[in-house]
Design a binder for these strands. Structure first.
Lengths: 241, 241
DNA sequence: CGGATCGTTGAGTTGTATCAAGACGGGTGG
DNA sequence: CCACCCGTCTTGATACAACTCAACGATCCG
């Protein structure tokens, strides 16, 4: 399991020993079909899951059958650490593509975190990173136009996929429909379609099937007002202290 | 300092002993004038601050001088715990009214967290609570109408003020202008004004100066689709494990 | 080949923003 | 104590971004 869990270390940097311990804590793997939910709001899971392969998202349902995707997950991400920290989930986690997950029981995680404060802080930082991304999304959805919002989201996804080595030099594959892009940006699927067309016409991106090509990274960044700072918590911050 | 820090224990439940230790860690208090910033995005603070008295908010600035408030803080809240966990701030924290803060140096916090895993997890849960509120705001701003958004926000603020004993039976005092409500909900100040008028006409709330009276809690909750679950992480979850 | 899902485009509607002007109210200085 | 001023609230008129509804085309898959 170690080499799988090691993936996590790219995103939430762990020492080799810490990665090994987390890997030992993972008892098994499990799979998820597209559209299948891992957990629902209100659930009290007894294990955490690391996304080893595939793409997932977190989402909330609001009145009127509307859906808001609040985060996209990439391989290496902890999907439901909140279940460990807070007890109950307050959002759903669903698969966007076939997914493979590592399962880490809460009991094992608790033992690890108690015995190893440094590892606990690393996981704590992961929660803080989630919070930072949520915060950026509040600003994205609240104060940017549709055109800016989608540009910003594409920048974020590209940056995160690059961090885990899953992007190409100028683009990435991503199994997300326009309707889901709408659920993530608070827009209608129809409007997402028009805005994507605009971004394409402006020479910023190209779309082929499920692959996104970024023709002008600087342009896209400028449009979205994207600053990657919030995605890069300083891994050595507490170690230095 | 203990009786001041104890306030924190109402919101992020701490044992008496833990509250005492945190109180000992706080070296001094400081004050903030309205509109004054405690920290800015990019800062690397060397201490955390507990809001003892007054009201503050966290906000981001996006292109075009637009502002998005991403969270309101009430007395008892940790304002900049992210500075400790992540290293650098990625949002600003500003005072809405005159504020009194307790100052806890990162060095003291690190020592406390290392020596006391249970206290560390309590603080970790505080980060998770912040994340849960951000996530709810993403859904609020992304998928609710102006009318629903403002109703939901008022429900949240009332609930949180009730948790720390600062609400009246059916209302609360809150030094927030309509322009700031707009910055928090992603709306213009003019539109906030119209929607508040609508909520008043519909018999849900009344406003007098800076005080909010809730005439129909059930109505307001129904309109906003408000479920307080995300504000109430189970404090005993990890203790039981 | 048929059905399902997703993308695309058009026409019309609506929610919310913007601009502008005036009313109110609380503080300050004369 | 009054006059003034500044920030805030309120209201109206107009503009526009984004939504909805609807139809059709393109793919993919069984």
């Amino acid at each position: 399991m170690h080499h799988l869990i090691r993936k996590l270390s790219r995103f939430t940097p762990l020492s080799t020993e810490e990665a090994k311990r987390l890997g030992d804590a993972a008892t098994r793997t499990t799979r998820l079909a597209p559209e299948q939910d891992l957990v629902r709001a209100g659930d009290r899971p007894d294990a955490c899951h690391v996304l080893l392969d595939g793409f997932a998202c977190r989402y909330k349902l609001v009145a009127d059958a509307k859906r808001q995707i609040i985060a996209f997950s990439v391989p290496g991400d902890l999907l439901d650490l909140d279940g460990f920290v807070a007890g109950a989930m307050n959002y759903n986690v669903g698969a966007l593509s076939p997914c493979t997950l590592a399962v880490i029981p809460h009991t094992a995680l608790l033992a690890l975190a108690s015995a190893n404060p440094r590892l606990a802080r690393t996981l704590w930082r992961d929660t803080a990173l989630d919070a930072a991304i949520f915060a950026e999304w509040v600003a994205n959805v609240g104060r940017r136009t549709a055109y800016q919002r989608i540009a910003h989201l594409l920048c974020e996804v590209f940056t995160r996929l690059t961090q885990v080595g899953l992007a190409r030099e100028a683009g990435f594959d991503w199994p997300v429909t326009q309707a889901k892009l709408g659920d993530a940006t608070g827009l209608s699927d129809v409007h997402v379609n028009r805005v994507l067309g605009e971004l394409r016409r402006d020479g910023l991106i190209r779309l082929h099937g499920r692959s996104v090509l970024i023709d002008s990274w600087d342009g896209l960044r400028a449009v979205g007002g994207f600053d990657p700072g919030y995605l890069c918590p300083d891994p050595d911050h507490l170690a230095r202290a």
